[in-house]
């Protein structure tokens, strides 16, 4: 006679078998994949980042000419009503220069480091709690940040200089005409105030670029596709990013071979700086530095049509100052 198993063991084994089957069924039901080619649906709400401050009673745009970079920035900001107009005590400020290229300051492909450093200092003087300087570079960021001179200059004035890292880019819904969902560089937009600090330069496809095109630096992903519709994408970006203040460095200007240059022969010393609360106006004025007019730049017309700013400089409270 064979030895049977105990009743207890029989029950336990049956229960285990039943439990296993139940678990498998549960997984099969819950994780069932129907298949098919469902495309990811856009869910996020459209995001606009407006860091603007009220405009009443002050100038909208100042052009400072003929002076050392530091003096140009100080005088221009002073004429705009001082940095206190833009930065309040305890603010977290982000300054976004152009740190796109592995070039030294003389080559004028990146924003002048003295301009950036002076802005950092003015922000702290106005009571900023923290000033972050960053950009999503085109060339290797470590080289761009160091060789542009911006890392050292901004750090010396107490700024937090942040190298862009992959994890800082998060998908957002810009809701633009060509730019809908894109990875956005969050370090740039997690702030109370944002100062756009581009450098004016020649660009073969867009003609002239400075303020509005500088927002390419807040995108990650496949930026190389934007060129296929450069004017609309620039306008889309400027719709998304509305800075507190725009400061266009035109101390040295790339007049050809932009946006990288590479030779001193490509640059011309202009000792000029534009401060503006209207980024469209800043570009409408800036493009005249390299002999273009606002009609040469379709992205200006697009931006104006969307009410981001104006290209009609007569409608602005504007002043030109001689610094030297």
């Amino acid at each position: 006679m064979s030895e049977g198993i105990s009743r207890r063991e029989a029950i336990v084994r049956t229960a285990k078998a039943a439990g296993g089957l139940l678990a498998a069924s549960a997984v099969g039901t819950l994780a069932f994949d129907r298949g098919g080619l469902d495309v990811e649906r856009r869910t996020g709400k459209r995001v606009v980042r407006d860091f603007g401050v009220p405009r009443e009673g002050n100038l909208d745009l100042v052009v400072a000419r003929h002076g050392e970079p530091e003096a140009l920035v100080r005088k221009a900001i002073e004429a705009m009503g001082g940095m206190r107009r833009f930065v309040s005590r305890g603010d977290k400020v982000v300054i976004k220069p152009n740190i796109g290229w592995d070039r030294i300051p003389l080559q004028a492909a990146n924003t002048n480091p003295v301009v950036v450093a002076t802005l950092v200092e003015l922000c702290f003087d106005a009571g900023a709690a923290r000033v972050t300087v960053t950009d999503a570079s085109c060339n290797d960021p470590r080289r761009c940040f160091q060789r542009s001179g911006i890392w050292r200059a901004a750090h010396a004035r107490g700024a937090t200089v942040v190298l862009p890292v992959e994890r800082a880019f998060r998908k957002m819904r810009l809701g633009g005409e060509v730019l809908d969902e894109w990875p956005v560089y969050t370090t740039l937009i997690e702030a109370d105030k944002v100062i756009n600090a581009p450098i004016a330069k020649h660009h073969n496809l867009a003609g002239y670029t400075a303020a509005m095109k500088n927002w390419y630096g807040c995108l990650g992903g496949r930026r190389n596709r934007l060129h296929q519709s450069i004017d609309v994408s620039v306008a889309d970006l400027a719709t998304f990013m509305r800075p507190t203040l725009t400061v266009v460095d035109a101390v040295r200007v790339l007049v050809r071979n932009g946006p990288q240059g590479g030779s001193l022969d490509d640059t011309r010393r202009m000792d000029t700086l534009i401060a503006s609360v209207d980024q469209v106006a800043a570009d409408a004025l800036g493009c005249t530095l390299i002999g273009r007019t606002k009609d040469d730049l379709p992205y200006l017309r697009l931006a104006e049509g969307r009410g981001i700013g104006t290209t009609d400089l007569t409608r602005l409270r504007m002043r030109e100052i001689e610094v030297a």
Binding site: C138, H203, N204, L205, N224, H227, Q228, S229, I230, N257, P259, Q260, G261, G262, S263, D265, D266
Partner: peptide, 20 residues
């Protein structure tokens, strides 16, 4: 017939080896 020239933008020589 689509505009692009990202290559030209990134061409680092001066004058650029890529011309349009």
């Amino acid at each position: 017939d689509i505009p692009c020239i990202v290559c030209e933008e990134f061409c680092p020589t001066s004058p650029k080896a890529i011309w349009v």
